[in-house]
């Protein structure tokens, strides 16, 4: 890995939701670093806390929060010390933009695309109206949409085009970090591939830092420099894509990889029996223990995070025991 500067440094982040049955530990003590210009793919099964992690970073919080703590150092500033007003004014959209899950359906159907795209730019009075329009036309081209489509209404665009319009919107303010939550999951295969091409081109030309949230490990490999695996609110493994795709360490990551069918290669498919634990009163030990073939006595305690070298970490007692640095 190069000595690029760290764009995002998250330490001990927690986001719990209040419910009648008790707090939902959706993001529980998550730490990682992301370098400028890199893309981190956050993968894991439904309900493991991927979108909640995005919400915590973007401070797009629902009302029923019971715990929100830890530190989020973004471009050298600790965002947790910002009040909501300052966060809104200086960070959201301007520096960290997001493409929320299922957002291609969130465009207002009766407002022309251009008006919807310039709005966030005008709110932040970084641009006057003409400049905003010019900028939006520029990003429309970057995402590969004909500029005259700006004058259309959302329903006149296909799903794939709407999704690109949303990505254009996120790019418009030239943010340093863009969080993409399942950007292609609702799209058809060919639109999905086209969108990945677009994102890849942006990544190569603009040097934006991305967090890509997806349950699709195959698609994640199109963009990821790093991969983080979440399981039941915990980030159980963090590694460069190269290590993750060739030599994942955490027993859950390995099982997950083994369950992915491949088109080009014939392999023995496996599945993971059982299901993830509830995030209300999760087990006190390793949260994967009930489904793990390698568990042993120690696993009844929450595993510590072991540094595997080169920024890679794993949360599993197997590695804490040996203390071996695997990714030197």
């Amino acid at each position: 890995m190069s000595d690029k500067k760290v764009m995002l440094d998250v330490q001990n982040l927690k986001l719990y939701f209040r419910t009648q049955a008790g707090p939902v530990q959706a993001v529980d003590d998550v730490s990682f670093q992301l370098k400028q210009g890199h893309t981190l793919a956050v993968v894991g099964e439904s309900g493991c806390g991927k979108s909640s992690l995005a919400k915590a970073i973007l401070r797009l919080l629902p009302r029923n929060i019971s715990t929100y703590e830890g530190s989020i150092i973004f471009d050298g500033q600790d965002l947790m010390t910002f009040d909501d007003e300052r966060f809104r004014r200086e960070i959201r959209w301007i520096n960290i933009a997001s493409v929320p899950q299922a957002s291609m359906n969130s465009l207002n159907p009766v407002v022309r695309i251009e008006d919807q795209l310039i709005e966030p730019l005008l709110v932040h009075d970084k641009f006057n109206k003409q400049k905003a329009k010019d900028r939006v036309a520029e990003v429309f081209e970057i995402v590969g949409l004909p500029v005259d489509f700006l004058q259309r209404y959302p329903f006149e665009l296909s799903g794939g085009m709407r999704q690109r319009a949303i990505i254009a919107m996120a790019l418009a303010s030239d943010p340093k970090l863009i969080v993409l939550d399942e950007p292609s999951s609702a799209l058809d295969l060919l639109s999905q591939a086209n969108l990945m091409n677009v994102l890849k081109r942006i990544k190569q030309t603009i040097n934006t830092t991305f967090i890509l949230i997806t349950h699709d490990i195959g698609t994640a490999s199109e963009l990821a420099d790093e991969v983080a695996v979440m399981y039941a609110g915990k980030m159980v493994e963090y590694a460069s894509a190269e290590y993750f795709y060739t030599d994942a360490h955490h027993p859950y990551s390995q099982k997950l990889m083994a369950s992915v069918p491949t088109l080009r290669e014939d392999k023995d498919l496996a599945f993971i029996p059982g299901q993830p634990p509830s995030l209300i009163n999760p087990p006190t030990g390793c949260r994967f223990a009930a489904r793990c073939e390698k568990r042993f006595e120690k696993c009844s305690m929450q595993p510590r995070t072991t540094d595997l070298g080169n920024g890679a970490t794993v949360q599993c007692w197997l590695f804490d025991e040996t203390g071996e640095v695997k990714h030197a």
Binding site: L189, L190, Q192, A193, M196, K200, D216, I217, G218, T219, A220, S221, E222, L223, A224, D225, A241, E242, F244, Y245, T246, M257, V260, T262, L263, R264, E265
Partner: peptide
């Protein structure tokens, strides 16, 4: 268009 999990895809 189908992506197998493969670091070369990048």
């Amino acid at each position: 268009a189908t992506s197998d999990p493969d670091v070369e895809n990048l």
